[in-house]
Design a protein around this nucleic acid. Structure first.
Lengths: 336, 336
DNA sequence: TTGTAAGCGTTATCAT
DNA sequence: ATGATAACGCTTACAA
């Protein structure tokens, strides 16, 4: 009672495996009646293609690997979710690997996927990964297609999908300015990451364009967690700020708590805009304005670009996904 | 400049592919010097095993599929994340599929995984899936191992990993009672799901064990979203309740808003405990007490059980993962 | 339109 | 401890 193969179907119908294979594959050169007979017989016998054999024969799996630092982060799981939908639609299965932000795990994941002969890899690099050396080596002479997203090394082959971080931060800052805030600090994150640097630039440009003074003393280059949000907000308030742009929502939350502890009214006395549009932002009081990164869009764009690379319709390139400012209470002085 | 195979290594060393294969596989019957030579040569030539060929030959992929309703839900992404870590450690790669709560997509995912000859499948069924018929058919005669989690059909072969929902709800309710709440309503969710029914039972048992009257008129069998949380809390308050147990955190949040709109002090006038311990619960004010489901533990338990099934160390069984009550402000009258 | 036949890279069996 | 050989199920020139 072992699984039927195309040979079994062929024997059953008195034809050859090649014809069965062609019929099953939807090849044009098969008589309609033959195709029908094959299909019927396959169904009747409970035939299921052995993808292992098929992939092996073709030399490449109909599989795409996705490598992310952590699966259980809203940003990444949304990206994976959107990408999965696109890939399934196109007949690809999706293998996921997480690196836990470790370069070593990233190396291992790359090796595994290369051994599995995946058709392509979508990757957002671990925090520890400092260059594209490993990935370049692993992919060399393998024609596995590559799409990087969010954290990318532009020098690598393939395509790249990133957020328009500059304009996100720009819009957030302009919004604060439009709401009458006069001295706007910024918690911008570590600047060795492109996206953080771009946000920083967007913040600066917005100030400049509005004719406001850029003041390096109220820019905080710390990691974006609640604790730093709290401490940086504290410094900002001491420095006379009446608003803070934060490169993350968790740090924005910390800032919010600090302002509250200081007895400041939000948004009356102090305005805050975060980044990432985490779910909790809509649920806290006061609700948090935030730059939404359109993570699902990043995922579907990355997946579609991968399909284009695989079909030869793209040679590689760069895609920028827009952000949008979600205005909530924490920065809405005007509509007060 | 094509990828080297074991044949290339064999030729290079003047031995046969069989020996190379054995050496690479760590077979005991290989002279130490030979093994070393093979390893060195493999490294030098940049050899990488063709898993496609290996899996094909063995008839089964070193791959496990995970099927969930949605990837981008904290509960599921945490489970996937934990499971992935366990599987990687054991040398398996992980394929993910999401069903978007649709029976049709679940069927498709099962077919895909079966075709891929995965070693095993971890699944939490879609809301639409009403029985185990499809999965039983797909797995029949395939010896793909099965581990169901969260939403399960106990009649299927393999193992099952579920939360101890009964005791979670029980503890939550007892906690409310211990904090002096006298009339405790419950938003329990649709009772056609096992876990919701078990929570309902836990809630009832807690009341009974505490010598309190169970009152069906303050039990709400609605879905657990913020809106129903709000409306059910409203009804509960009208019915004289001073507390609410909610089978979800989002609905608990709605309840919280309702109480606040009614001018009730939380936890003074009204107590609330939710379920799932969503991240936002710790971030809102007042913070939300909640039953934590230990999702990572579900994931790692399910994965480890799968490994046991695969190695023949388990014949299938049921695993219950504990819950824990995270007490926060919304129900903490005592420590006021 | 269909058949023939070779072969993908690895592993398993059997022999040496 | 190693070699010889077959086989896994499928696809694809090439031939008919």
């Amino acid at each position: 009672m072992t699984k039927p193969t195309i040979v079994d179907i062929a024997n059953e119908l008195g034809i050859t495996p090649s014809t069965v294979s062609r019929a099953l594959a939807g090849n044009a050169n098969v008589k309609e009646s033959t195709r029908k007979a094959v299909m019927d017989c396959a169904r009747k016998m409970g035939y299921e293609r052995n993808d292992l054999a098929s992939d092996f024969r073709r030399g490449v799996a109909h599989t795409v690997g996705i490598i992310v630092p952590r699966i259980n982060r809203e940003f990444f799981s949304s990206i994976i979710s959107a990408a999965e939908s696109v890939f399934v639609e196109a007949g690809y299965t999706v293998v996921i690997c997480q690196t836990h932000e470790k370069a070593e795990d990233e190396r291992r994941a790359l090796k595994t996927l290369a051994s599995s002969r995946v058709a392509g890899i979508l990757i957002s690099h671990s925090a520890e990964t400092i260059d594209g050396k490993d990935i370049r080596e692993t992919l060399a002479g393998s024609n596995i297609k590559l799409v990087q997203f969010d954290r990318v090394f532009p020098s690598l082959p393939g395509s790249v999908v990133v957020n328009d971080d500059f304009n996100g931060a720009y819009a957030a800052t302009r919004h604060l300015i439009a709401n009458g805030y006069k001295r706007i600090g910024a918690l911008v994150g570590y600047l060795d990451t492109d996206s953080f640097r771009n946000r920083f630039e967007g913040y600066k440009a917005a100030l400049t364009d509005a004719g406001m003074q850029y003041d390096a003393s109220i820019v905080y280059k710390e990691t974006i967690v609640p604790e730093t949000g709290y401490s940086c907000a504290s410094m900002a308030i001491d420095a006379g700020c009446d608003a803070l742009y934060s490169s993350g929502d968790f740090s924005a939350l910390g800032a919010l708590e600090c302002a509250r502890d200081r007895g400041l009214d939000i948004p009356g006395d102090f305005g805050i805009v975060g980044t990432a549009n985490e779910k909790f932002g809509a649920m806290i009081a006061p609700s948090l304005s935030s730059v939404d990164q359109h993570s699902a869009e990043i995922g579907s764009n990355a997946a579609k670009e991968m399909l284009r690379l695989l079909s030869g319709k793209s040679e590689g390139g760069s895609i920028t996904v827009g952000t949008s400012l979600v205005v909530r209470r924490s920065s809405s002085r005007n509509s007060k």
